[in-house]
Design a protein around this nucleic acid. Structure first.
Lengths: 149, 149
DNA sequence: GGAAGTAGGCACTTCAAAGTGCGTAACACA
DNA sequence: TGTGTTACGCACTTTGAAGTGCCTACTTCC
């Protein structure tokens, strides 16, 4: 009977904890931006449409079509692209504009909020470029010691 | 035979894409901080040991014992706590100090790099508090329209 | 008239991460 | 002597997200 006592206790405390986590706006922000395709779509829409995500993320924001995004993000499945675009639209970070042309044309564009988020991610990039090398150095050193020492 | 042609093409492009992603330091940073327990451990070690993560994350950084962290983070399983601490130690964000006392005592402490990361996450928090409400508003509006409209 | 392109929807499957329980070495205390 | 604590390691299981294939409606081009 009492085989899950410890588990249930943890479930209790976890439930409370999850509530707390859900309340934390920075946690929610992380949930949003920590998605692989979210960051890439933001980068794509935030920069011009050329496939230069890594370097500077510069260029002017430009609306992109679904098919353009699909080609730009290369490895993304249609499902994930659609799904991610929906969630970004839901959050008011991008707008979806469907024009009933020959075959229906849909374009996506960053909102002001989306641009704001994109700007912040460039800030993140700054920190990362400053310190992430150090982190990776530490990681390599740790691994070397673990296997050699 | 050629049933996986499209899939394999995607696999190709995805492989290239993953390489690119792996090279991006901001992507790596996201991989690090977007972990639930990472952020909480950082918050715990970055603030004093009281259970006030949400409000201000203030207080002075203080080394904490494994058991203290375990109690503080409540819902965390021992496995995840150990695992997360290891990875943070590996990255040079925290230090692990074992003192061979009565039952062995282990304390964890933020390194300078860890403090730096903790500071940045407070910056994140700033953005989140400024804009995340807006995002959540949009989300709620979207959901309402979807179900009611 | 059938193939192709556009922007997806739907359902099945897989796969890795997280959860969960159990074991451990050393010592202290009853 | 046996039970408890500390700080884990190991192995099994679950689960939820992502991947993948297959479908549509409409049109245009060959």
């Amino acid at each position: 009977m009492a085989t899950t006592t410890a588990a249930q206790q943890r479930a209790q405390t976890r439930a409370q904890y999850d509530v707390f986590l859900a309340e934390c706006p920075s946690r929610k922000l992380l949930d949003r931006i920590s998605d692989k395709w979210v960051t890439l779509i933001l980068a794509a829409l935030g920069s011009d449409g050329s496939h230069r995500f890594g370097a500077d993320c510069a260029g002017e924001p430009r609306p992109l079509r679904y098919s353009e995004l699909s080609r730009l993000l290369a490895g993304v499945s249609q499902k994930m692209l659609t799904q991610t675009l929906r969630s970004l639209e839901r959050d008011g970070l991008i707008t979806r504009t469907a024009t009933p042309t020959v075959p229906v044309t849909v374009t996506y564009e960053l909102t002001d909020l989306g641009v704001s988020l994109h700007q912040m991610m460039r800030g993140l990039k700054g920190w990362a470029e400053t310190h992430m090398d150090e982190v990776l150095d530490n990681r390599a050193t740790y691994d070397t010691r673990a296997s050699a020492g």
